[in-house]
């Protein structure tokens, strides 16, 4: 697979404890893939490996065709990330936060203001550009982080439980927006333990105790059961 995200046989241990066990997955461009797993399933470990905060001794990760082990710079340049923890500098304005990120990604200086305007515009945040991040509410902060993750035109977008701490309206808005991005051709991996964020047409991966239990299209996988009940039956954890 060239454009999307591909993981082969990825394992990772914390000392004697196995966190991920031979995980393989593929997400095609234009696909929204939900990675569903209860707490402690290994989602955070997988995200750390995909973002190269950790490196696994075994297994391969390809991002937009670039091998994360052999060509980390190209692979990371093609990846946009929204972390579970807030990563904004609250004392800086929205624009300063985005400029900082643009520089970290080596975007040409002349392009940065235009890209920031476009990214904020896409998320209806244009009028907030000069506000301090501290002044934004939780939903707007998340939207800003999403705008930031798209600043360098990534091919693959990774979101790690992006709706944690948001109210229902903000959750729905951000979930819908990212689905739109996938429809426009982006490859999206969305980790969550909340089944109501997953649509029937989405690709679904169920991660449990470090292994992929199920992979397929959500509607097919869950059959006639509501996803939350099906998920509970599979993992023994309330969704």
């Amino acid at each position: 697979m060239t454009g999307g995200l591909s993981v082969r046989d990825l394992s990772f241990d914390y000392g004697p404890k196995r966190a991920l066990d031979a995980v393989s997955l593929d997400v095609a461009p234009g696909r929204f893939c939900a990675l569903l797993g209860p707490n402690g399933a290994g989602k955070s470990t997988l995200v750390s490996l995909l973002t190269r905060l950790l490196v696994a001794p075994k297994g391969d990760i390809h991002i937009a065709g670039h091998d994360l082990r052999r060509a980390p710079r190209k692979a990371l340049a093609a990846l946009g990330v929204v972390f579970q923890q807030p990563t904004l500098d609250l004392n800086l304005s929205v624009r300063q936060n985005l400029s900082y990120f643009a520089a970290l990604h080596g975007l040409p200086r002349s392009e940065v203001p235009g890209r920031i305007d476009a990214a904020l515009d896409r998320l209806d945040m244009a009028e907030r550009a000069d506000e301090k991040a501290r002044a934004l509410n939780g939903g707007h902060r998340r939207r800003m982080e999403l705008a930031r993750a798209l600043l360098h035109d990534p091919k693959v977008l990774l979101l790690d439980e992006p709706t944690v701490g948001l109210d229902a309206a903000a959750r729905a808005a951000i979930t819908a927006h990212v689905h739109d991005l996938a429809d426009q051709g982006l490859c999206v991996l969305w980790t969550t333990h909340l089944t109501d964020e997953v649509r029937d047409s989405d690709a679904l991966l169920v991660l449990h105790q470090g292994q992929i239990l199920h992979a397929g299209t959500t509607g097919d996988v869950r059959g006639d059961m509501p996803l939350s009940d099906w998920f509970l039956a599979q993992t023994g954890a309330p969704a």
């Binding site: 973002t51 190269r52 710079r73 990371l76 972390f83 990563t87 970290l104």
Partner: peptide
């Protein structure tokens, strides 16, 4: 994390 996931 943001810093360390820069491609540099």
């Amino acid at each position: 994390r943001l810093l360390l996931t820069s491609p540099f």
